[in-house]
Structures are given as C-alpha cells and as structure tokens.
Design a binder for these strands. Structure first.
Length: 422
RNA sequence: GGAGAGAUGGCUGAGUUGGUCGAAGGCGCUCGCCUGGAAAGCGAGUACACUGGGAUAACUGGUGUCGAGGGUUCGAAUCCCUCUCUCUCCGCCA
C-alpha cells in the first residue's frame, strides 16, 4: 500500500508510476474521495469535541447539584448528527481503503520500463547449457522411467497438477530442502517453520489480497487460506510490531509447502513439475532499514544464486521490467534456470524489494533511534529456491544417455552419498 | 469438546458503586544535575494513528485507541452483547 499522504501530495508522480506499470487506476476519483473523507472527518471531530466539552460540563453541574437537563437534551441532538456523519464517513473510508489496497507499488527508478516479459533485461548469466550427444528427455519422462515421479497417481488421488514423489525422488526433494536450509542458515538466515495456513489479514499484509483472491485456496468452513508461499507467514511474523533498531536487519529462511490455484494458467505447463497446485519451496525473507534495502536485494539475489551455483545449474538473472513485476514489488530479479526440454530458461526464483509497501499494510515498523518516531521497515524476499523446479532442472541437466541422472556433488551428503539415480 | 480465570502503555501493575483517566505506582529507557570516573541519589521527559494550524520545521489544536467489534449513556478502561486470544482443570488426540 502506498502512503496516503504521498499519494495526496504527489499525484503526478503516482500517475506516472502507474502508467509505467500499465496499471489501470482512476487516481483523480480516488483523490476526490479522499478530500471528501477529510472534510467529513473534520465535521465529525468538531461535533465530538463539542460533545466532550459539554459532557464535562454536565459532570461538573451534576456534582455541584445544578440542572443539566438542557445540555443533555442538546447533546442528544448532536449525537444524532454524529451518527449520521459517521455512517457517511465509514462508507467513504471503506471505498477509499479498497482503492488504496488495489494500487500497486511504485517501481524503483532502476527498473527498466516495459510492457511484459519480453521487455525484461538479462542482468547476467552463469554456467553453460549442457550439450548432449543424444536427444535429452523431459523431466517427466526421466522421472517416470526412473520410477521416482508418479504424475498419474497424483492426478488419480487428488487431481491435475498434483504429483507423488517416490523412493529416491522423494529423497531428492527432501535432500534439496535440507541442503538449501542448511546453506542459508550458515549465512545468517534464522530458520523458521511457519504455519501453512494464515488468516485474511496476513494475506492482505503481503499483498495477495484483496486483489488476487481467485489465486488462493481458502479452506472451506474456516477463514483460513493455504499459503501460496512462506513469504506470507514469515513476513507477517512481525505484523503490528515496532522493532528495535538494533534488531535489524532480520534474516529468515523457511521451508514450506506452497498452494496456488493457478487461475488463468489453464492449459499452461500441464506436464511435469513446473506448475503444480502444491509445491515445496525454501524462502528467504529480510526486514531491513530503508537506506540499505537495495544493497540487501543484491545480496539476497546472490544468496539465491549461490544455491544454483553450488548445484552446478546454469541460469540467468533477469531484471524484470515495470510491466512484468508483481503487484507489491518495487524491484524484482528473477532467476531463471536452464531447462533442456524447454530449450530455454525458466523461472526458479523471484527476488524482490517491496520497500515499505508490505510493511505499511502489515504495520511493521522500527525505531531509527531511541525516542525517534517509528518508521516502516523495508521487506524483501526471494525463493531460495523452488524445490520442484530444482528437481526438474537436476533431472534434465544431469541426465545421462542411459536414462540415469548424476546427483550434484554438493547434494550427495544429503543423499546418503549416492552419486547416480538409475 | 466441557468448566473456570484473564486480556490495561516497552515491561510490571493499579483502576470495575460510569464523570476532571491516555490512564497511579514501580521497572526500563532518554536528557540534565551530582562525580576524577562510575554506581547510588535528585530533577525533567518517555504510546500510536488520523487530522487541523505552522514551512512537508520547531511547536501546537482536535479526534480516536485500556484484546477486537457492536450496544446502553450527555459521558464507558469501568455496564451489556458477540468474537478472538492466553492460562488452569477435565475429556479427547498425533
């Protein structure tokens, strides 16, 4: 959420930013609403002021045995007026809040302007896509032949986009989770194991709601949502808190299952592990002081990259353009891993600086100095990494002509020393 | 699931026959005095949001907030209702 006062005093800057993003928001209508709100608020407050002063007077009169009947009668009428105005005010505030919650973040100055993913820029590439002396297979074929992935039974038990991992496949998934958590923990990220369901306010806090409710799974009979990423519970860990300045920066890493409805993705990536309703992910989350947040974004991205490098997976880093960024983000780098079956790079991590956009929604502040006025922290997060896509990348990049798959050396300690899945 | 107790400021803890309570006291913290320095002691200050004035300052006016939401009342931390959470006991359970 943007700062209301900033929007009010810099309408042109906001309009320009929204245009750069390709967002459709009627800002003039919003500003007119906001002006009306303040006018009504002033009226209500002055009436309440009157009520407070007179009530005090009534108290004084009664204690000294005077007659306050006339004043009481007058206040009855004032209360009527207050009630009416408050109803009006509540309506205005609700309307305004709804619009404010649907305005996306302002892109950082360094974000390339652009309309969609074709305008994203390659920041750097690492590693070389493998050259095969045979026709490489897709990971779903490799996985089924090795009997470590079972898509058919996943669909039979639950539905499309659900999968069983079996045997060494399941072991590989678990190994990757542990490898990533251990690696990040060693770099100062404090591991947390979050709830996999959250209430609505948390979803609003990180920006999934109210605008994108159709993307989320809501648990019937409850007010809980299945988390689409650990970002939601972990960022909201500090909601409605004022953090001590010396606690910052806070780094967390967290494993969680992630649940996404994938509304609007019907027919896309229907085979394999790339787009599942449930997948595992290790997430990195940071709470930092505003002046450091862009430096922290570079470090966060590097920490996610370190996993790909340790596994020996070729990838590239994309600086997302203004039109392709997520709703809450001010700047995003996507990490894309090479997938031979697609003959291209596919997203495996997304690292973003949200500046104070999420912090304002979730009420996460810090005190810059003792006694100083609290300010919003900057929040960042990035996948480190999506596990299912990492499995796909390993199977495809390290496949052998005989259908076996070589396990990256960094992962072998987590696989009981196993070198090859065959 | 059943029975009971509770939720107050950074912490602790008063206040529940409604009225001058944003809220005593203590601790902590900040600044000052004292000291060669420190402790102790003394003095002052110490919530957040919205909103008005002011320069988008210092400062200052107002409104709201005592778990959340509603109600009664001229007036609610105090009375009533609903919800949430915490604790204790019983039951159940991985």
């Amino acid at each position: 959420m943007l700062d209301l006062k900033f929007v009010r005093s810099n309408p042109d800057a906001v309009k320009e930013a929204l245009e750069k993003r390709g967002a459709k928001v009627n800002l003039d209508e919003f500003l007119a609403l906001e002006e009306q709100r303040r006018k009504t608020l002033a009226q209500v407050e002055s009436l309440k002021n009157k009520r407070n002063t007179v009530s005090e007077e009534v108290g004084r009169l009664k204690r000294s045995g005077g007659d306050a009947a006339a004043l009481v009668e007058e206040m009855r009428q004032v209360n009527q007026d207050i009630k009416e105005l408050e109803t009006k005010l509540a309506k205005l505030e609700e309307e305004m809040e709804n619009s404010l919650y649907e305005i996306p973040n302002i892109p950082h100055a360094s974000v390339p302007a652009g309309k969609d993913e074709t305008d994203n820029q390659v920041a750097r590439t690492w590693g070389e896509p493998p050259k095969f002396s045979f026709v490489p297979q897709a990971h779903w074929d490799i996985g089924e032949k090795l009997n470590i992935l079972d898509f058919e039974r996943g669909a039979r038990v639950t539905g499309a986009r659900f999968t069983f991992y079996k045997g060494l496949g399941s072991r590989l998934e678990r190994a990757l989770i542990n490898f990533m958590l251990d690696t990040h923990s060693g770099k100062g990220y404090v591991e947390v194991f979050p709830p996999f369901m959250v209430h609505r306010h948390s979803m609003v806090g990180t920006g999934q709601l109210p605008k994108f409710e159709e993307d989320a799974f809501k648990v019937a009979g409850t007010e809980y949502f299945l988390i689409p990423t650990a970002e939601v519970p972990v960022t909201n860990m500090y909601r409605e808190e004022i953090l001590e300045s010396d606690k910052l920066p806070i780094y967390h890493c967290a494993y969680s299952a992630c649940f996404r409805a994938e509304a609007g993705a019907a027919g896309r990536d229907t085979r394999g592990l790339i787009r599942q309703h449930q997948f595992n992910k290790v997430e990195l989350v940071k709470f930092v002081k505003p002046e450091n947040s862009y430096e922290e974004l570079e470090k966060l991205t590097a920490d996610a990259e370190a996993i790909l490098q340790a596994l020996g997976l070729p990838y590239r880093v994309m600086a997302l353009c203004s039109g392709d960024m997520g709703f809450s983000s001010a700047k995003t780098y996507d990490l894309e891993v090479w997938l031979p079956s697609f003959n291209t790079y596919r997203e495996i991590s997304s690292c973003s600086n949200f500046e104070d956009f999420q912090a304002r929604r979730a009420g996460i502040k810090f005190r810059p100095a003792p006694k100083a006025k609290p300010e919003f922290v900057h929040t960042l997060n990035g996948s480190g990494l999506a596990i299912g896509r990492t499995v796909a990348a390993i199977l495809e990049n390290f496949q052998q002509e005989d259908g076996s798959v070589v396990i990256p050396p960094a992962l072998r300690p987590y696989m009981g020393g196993l070198e090859v899945i065959r």
